[in-house]
Structure formats: C-alpha cells, structure tokens
Design a protein around this nucleic acid. Structure first.
Lengths: 190, 190
DNA sequence: TGAACCATGTAAGCCGTTACATGATTCG
DNA sequence: CGAATCATGTAACGGCTTACATGGTTCA
C-alpha cells in the first residue's frame, strides 16, 4: 500500500528527457534504461492516464494524418514531484534471486545441474559485460553533447562492477563444486 | 502466465529441509534465505493449499492442545518437481533498480540529493558486508554438521562479491560527483 | 504485398504485500 | 499480566505482464 509506484517516476523522467507519447516512452525505455528497468505498454498507458488526472502531466491530442496521438509533457507539479523523488530514499526491492534459491537447496540437486546453472549464469554475465563495454566505448564519441552523459556513465559503471563480481563469484563457485561429480550425490543417509 | 511461481519451489525446498507448517516456513525464510528471498504469510498459506491440491505435498492436521496445526510434507511428486526445477533455467527477473533510475535522470536532480543517495547506498552495502562476514565467520563452527553448508557458503559468497563491487562503485561514483556542488546545477538554459 | 513501425488502449489474471481477524501457550 | 511466540487463514488492493484488439504508414 505504502509502496510507491516507481513506474510513475520512470515515466516522468523520460518525459523530462524528451519523450512525448506512450509509444515514445516504451521505446526510450528499451534504448536507454533497458539494462536496469523495464516497462510494458499495458502499464505505461494507465500510468500516463493517472498522471494526467493528478495534474503531473499535460495531455494534448494531436491528429496526424487521420491518426490520434496523445502528446504528454511535464507540468510544474510533475517537475516538482520528480524533484521530490530524488530526495526520497530508494524503496527496498523485494529480494528474489532464483539462482541463489536453487543453490541454497543445492544439497537436493544433482551437482551437474547446479554446475550447469552457474555456467549459464557466468555466460550471461560475460555477454552482459561485453555489451556494457561496447556501450561505454561508444559513449565518449558523443560526449559534451549531452549533460546526461556523466549520469549515464555512472549507471553503466555499476553494471560493470557488479558483472565482474558475478563472474568472479561464478569462477569461485565452479571451483568449489567441480570436485562434486555425480558420485557424491549417492550418499543419501539422513 | 508462463511465469513459474517461484514461491512454490521455495516452499518445496524448505519442506525438504525440515519445515513442517506454514509458520515454520515463514520462520525458516527469515532465518536462512532471508538475504535473497522473502515470503509473507499471505502468500505461503495459499501456496501450500495449491501444492496440496496438486499432490506435491501431503497434509496432516495435528491437534495439539486444542489447537489445529497443519503439517505438510513432500510427496514423491513434490520431490520430483523439485528435482525438475533444478534443471530448469532461472526465470529472468524483471529488472528494477531504483537507484540507477534516479541516477540516470540525475541531470534533473540537485547533485546533493544524488550524493546523499549514493552515500546511503554505500552505507547499506557496508552494513550488509559486515553482516555477511559475521555469518561466514560463524559458519565453520557448525561445519561438517550439515551437508548443506557448502551450498550456504556459496550463496553467502555471492553476497560478499556483489556487496564489495557495489561499495567500490559507490566510491567511484562519489569521486565523480564530488566536483559537482550546488553551483553546477545553476546553469539552466535549454 | 507483407513486414516493420507508429500508436493506443483494455481485460484477464497472477504475483505478492498489508491489514485484518482470531486465539492458544509460554515466559518474564 | 502482558509480551512474545505459535498458528492459520482471508480480504483488499496494487503492481505488472501478457494477450487481445485495432488500425494507419512506410519501405523493401
């Protein structure tokens, strides 16, 4: 109940950054914050509606070539709400790490399955790392162009740090589980 | 829809580890997997009911001193389902990192607010790190007692790796944002 | 012509939390 | 006696995704 709807702030932020329509917002999510945030149409449109009712965004319906298009923009109230949000502590996200859950119950699994899980995990991190590096390498090209760059780099850097840590953990975990081949599972007294 | 209910597997796993009642499960969540998983009564009881209807757990009602107590246990089908789950790839968690969201829109914030956010984040990580170390230090004492220990250590080690990475990132971020004091915000053309 | 993109929205439904409701026992 | 713990469950509600429904434009 007290849970603040974070989608609202993602939408406000993207409108501040130049998004104009619901469709725009969805596209920008994918192109920019997609590495750590996702939104679906089914949520964006109702949120825009609610934001409008609350007076945080203005709504103008443009008719472009027979088609209707709803153009939204931040109002002063919306801007103030965004400002206030920056002062708000981040809402604790419910913890739910399925890999750790599987691992925690690892004693009931076949070691091969666990090893496969960790290897898959390591590969995902590896792929993510490569992608992050590519984006970071391309960033400086358009530097100075946008005052947002510093902040974008910051978010990417968190990705790099965490991804590296997860790869290192993966190596460590595999080294620890390596000795356990299928024979170890066989001792099943209680 | 295709999204598998992960709570079900958390419940199955905890029953395999000795939990007997809904209350037990909730308590064990807090005592063991609480660092990366949480469950509420309001979800556990319905899940147990569903699991029972599906035949994955057995249900026995004990009457202990006038009180009713529902004791659950894994059935063969439940055990098989748990086994199968270990082979299943982890379901991708919807990404939602509010700190990164705030940071990404950082250009619209007062740098002081962002710095405060990162400092708070760093302190949370620091506290978490200390806690993890304490748990890890106490673990070896009861080593050999439980075949689960290896796996528990693995989950704790991921916490250590990630927490360290987040602290390092925090330091880096603070160093980058430090130069930006309130004067920088003042240039507001556009 | 068909695919991809632009564009908007609703409905169904699960996931999950919080609050509510109840009541016994144990321990300080 | 009162707090903490054991114990079970429901109701309300919000968050969010998926699927459904629709239709125009652009480009290969």
């Amino acid at each position: 109940m007290a849970a603040i709807n974070r989608t609202e702030y993602a939408v406000l932020g993207l409108l501040a950054m130049g998004a104009r329509t619901g469709y725009d917002i969805k596209k920008m999510v994918e192109e920019t914050i997609g590495h750590f945030w996702n939104e679906s149409f089914g949520h964006i449109y109702p949120v825009l509606k609610r934001l409008h009712e609350r007076g945080w965004v203005s709504k103008t319906t443009e008719v472009v070539q027979g088609r209707n298009r709803n153009v939204y923009a931040l109002t002063a109230e919306g801007e103030a709400a965004l400002q206030a949000w920056f002062k708000e502590p981040v809402a604790p996200t419910p913890l739910r790490n399925e890999l750790l859950l599987k691992l925690f119950f690892g004693r009931f699994a076949q070691p091969e399955d666990l090893i496969a899980q960790i290897q898959a995990h390591r590969q995902r991190q590896q792929a993510g790392w490569v992608q992050l590096q590519q984006i970071l390498d391309q960033l400086p090209a358009e530097a100075e162009l946008s005052p947002h760059l510093l902040y974008w780099r910051l978010t990417l850097r968190m990705g790099v740090h965490v991804t590296q840590a997860l790869m290192q953990w993966g190596d460590e975990a595999l080294a620890l589980l390596g000795p356990l081949t299928s024979d170890t599972q066989t001792d099943e007294e209680e």
